[in-house]
Design a protein around this nucleic acid. Structure first.
Lengths: 234, 234
DNA sequence: GCACTCACTGCTGTATACAGATCTGCATAT
DNA sequence: ATATGCAGATCTGTATACAGCAGTGAGTGC
């Protein structure tokens, strides 16, 4: 394997944090976690320090690492920043992407299916993210893409909750309208649809957060991520 | 000290990297660096892993840590993203900041002096950054502020070079125009001035990068950061 | 003269040991 | 009953040891 060991631990722990298998606010026991992962504390701590830098964990000297608590304000800030970043990315993509690139994105969108029925929440979320990242990539700005990916990681769990509450239906429709607008080089329309799309999500999420994030943590992540989206009944 | 040791090492090494006392592309010797810092390799590596997460260092498993190479494209991307972020921040600030907050920022701007003559490059750069961060803070979005700070860290050296080449004179003027526009709640004007301000910087930097970043590294950082800006002779 | 091999040196990767700090729970006093 | 202090246990913080890999240079064969 060309991948480093720390990298591997980093991915696994991040996955645990993103999916809230590690519960927010909890201090994590290095010895126990290192044993669970089958490594020693040294590389584990190195991986944890990377996650601290990414704001995925808090670190309190003398006490240890804490799975990060997402408060309502931070969730809002993250969504707002995501909004800003994606809209800017769409404008850049509209100006810079080739027709072929846009066509490829459209094809991919259709290829992954128009409906989300039968998908798990995790799958649906991943596809949604992939489309948005796809647009960002067409901006030609790799730093922007990396940043958007990190933002997405931090709010992924919240998005799962949001999706599982059933507000995903119209997503694909809106995605298609966005890509069509980009192909027509109509940046204003693309941005308008995208902005509307995102702020609808934001509203939903605010509701979720208002209901109290704490209650959400009661659900195990398995319940949530593996939950299959039901067919529309209307 | 309430600060942790890793945190301290992290700051010191980051400072070295930001100021290019560690030269880009170089593999760094953990033993030598740990001895220089007066600590062992373990906490040093933890600090380095944080910097890897921040893209300040590259890490190649089996080989070690490398001080990050900034290529022209990445510099451009970083400036573009900074542009996007600051403009969005200014719009938010215009909508959300109180009159008192804006007045305080204006006062601070005047208090730190209108001219940069006699300042070192490092000081002039720090003040410029402080103003821009000040606006971002008024956006009320803490995540956005944190992100902007990280972007600034990554391009700080390039900015030093840019500043030392003498394009700083008009900065304060433009800053004043920005803050006046914000106070008048004229977001469009503020953004227009700010955007123009930033893209002028961007042009300068592209020139710097075109001249070849590699040649720049010849100058020690001390030459650059401590260089005092001369009075205008026109 | 050039290229290839092989041993060597030095560095990284990880485990582990130990010191010091923090937390927990019980006992005691108010 | 509540608060306080102490002792034991647990966990973190860092150094160090050692194994293994990567880079280097000399020497040899073609």
């Amino acid at each position: 394997m060309a991948e480093g060991r720390v990298e591997d631990i980093y991915d696994r722990v991040k996955q645990m944090a993103v999916t809230y298998r590690l519960r927010p606010g909890d201090r994590l026991n290095e010895v126990a976690l290192s044993r669970e992962l089958g490594v020693s504390r040294t590389p584990l701590r190195e991986a944890l320090n990377r996650l601290v830098a990414e704001k995925m964990f808090d670190f309190q000297p003398g006490t240890g690492f804490f799975c990060r608590q997402l408060d309502a304000q931070t969730v809002f800030d993250l969504y707002e920043l995501r909004d800003i970043t994606e809209i800017a990315a769409a404008r850049l993509a509209c100006a810079r992407a080739t027709d072929a690139q846009l066509a490829a994105l459209k094809d991919e969108l259709y290829a992954t299916g128009i409906t989300v029925d039968g998908l798990t929440v995790a799958e649906a979320c991943a596809r949604d993210e992939a489309f948005h990242i796809g647009i960002a990539r067409l901006s030609g700005n790799a730093v922007l893409v990396a940043q958007l990916e990190r933002i997405n990681e931090r709010i992924r769990y919240v998005r799962w909750v949001s999706l599982s509450m059933g507000q995903i239906r119209k997503s694909k429709d809106e995605h298609i309208r966005v890509i069509e607008a980009l192909i027509a080089r109509d940046a204003d329309t693309a941005v308008a649809v995208l902005g509307d799309h995102i702020s609808k999500r934001m509203d939903e999420v605010i509701d979720v957060v208002r209901q109290g994030i704490s209650t959400i943590y009661m659900n195990t992540i398995d319940d949530l991520s593996e939950m299959v989206l039901l067919e529309e009944n209307a």
